[in-house]
Structures are given as C-alpha cells and as structure tokens.
Amino acid sequence: MKCESCDNEATVHDTLLREGAWVEVHFCEACAAKQGIAQPGASLNDLLTNFVLPQIAGEAAKRPKPAKARTPVCAECGFTFEQFRQAGLFGCPSCYTAFESLLLPLLERAHEGAMQHVGKVPKRITEAASGKESVNGARALAERRERLEREKLLRRQLDDAVKSEQYELAAKFRDQLQRLLDSSRAADPSRNA
C-alpha cells in the first residue's frame, strides 16, 4: 500500500477521528511524522502534543460554549467556588490558585489577618531555591511531575470518551495510560503496586 501523501510504501496505519467520522489513514514514516501520527515507539509525549491535544482542542472548540459561568471554576479539577462554599473543602491543590482572589478575605478572617505562609517549607523547595539540589534529583522530580500530569490528562480524556460513548477512542486512551503506568513503574519503583 502506498502512502497517501507521497509514493513511498505506507508503513504507518491509523484510525483518526476527522470531522466527527472515523477514517483509516496510511502514511510512510516521514509523512506520518509530519501529520503528527504516532509510530510504534514514538514517545507518549509526542503522541500527546502532536495528536491527542490538537484533537481534544478541536473537539472542544466545536462544542457550543457554555453560557458564561457566574461562579469561577478551577481549570484543573472543574470544582466551582459555589461547590467550595457548600462543601467547605477545595477540590484539589490548584483550587487555591483558581480561587485566590475570592479566598484571601476568607483566609484573612480565619487566620488573624495573615495571607502569607511562614514556617516549615519542604526541603526540596528550599534546596531548589538555593540551587543546591542535584541536577539528577531535580530532573527526576520534573519527570515525575510530567508523568503525573500526563496520567491525569489521559484519565480525564478516558473518562470523557467513556461518557460520550466513544469506546474506540476510550480504548486508545486506556492503552496509552497502561503504557504510561508501565513506564512509570519501571522508572520509579516507589510507585510499584
């Protein structure tokens, strides 16, 4: 089979969601890379940045925008300030950033007017700030965070796909997630189950 873009032999075959319909595509390696299609062995990060993210962004753009929300929402976990008011608890650590302006008066009241932490700081923060932390340690931490971020994104995408009954897409996300988890375990034994 020939590549769809040039005359080379097609070695990369994939199924893509194009304008709401599933289409099979066949490319040679070079053209597949240009199209941002993952090849076996391509890093998950490439896969995400070249393929999944634009697709998600495209789909999100197609969806009708909800009416302007009256209550602020945490972009990280989708928790609203209204929900916080009811529960008295935040949804995730990022809620503190998302709701910062609304939160500060509350903190002031709860903590004798203070709005700045004083006290213990995790060693990795102080060491990173003073540049003492080893390059390896910093890299490992950065990689770990990146993996966590990717894991989170994939889980959300998997959830969305299942909810909207796009099971083929869901299966893809599931497999990607599995690969990510496997590689995390290999890279980071402390996460071994």
Binding site: L89, F90, L106, H117, K120, I125
Partner: peptide, 11 residues
C-alpha cells in the same frame, strides 16, 4: 505553595 504553605482540603 510558597505563598500559602501546605495546601489542605480545608482552608
């Protein structure tokens, strides 16, 4: 967070 310290479920 350097500003708010250890982030907890309840503020």
């Amino acid at each position: 967070s350097p500003k708010l310290g250890y982030l907890t479920a309840c503020p």
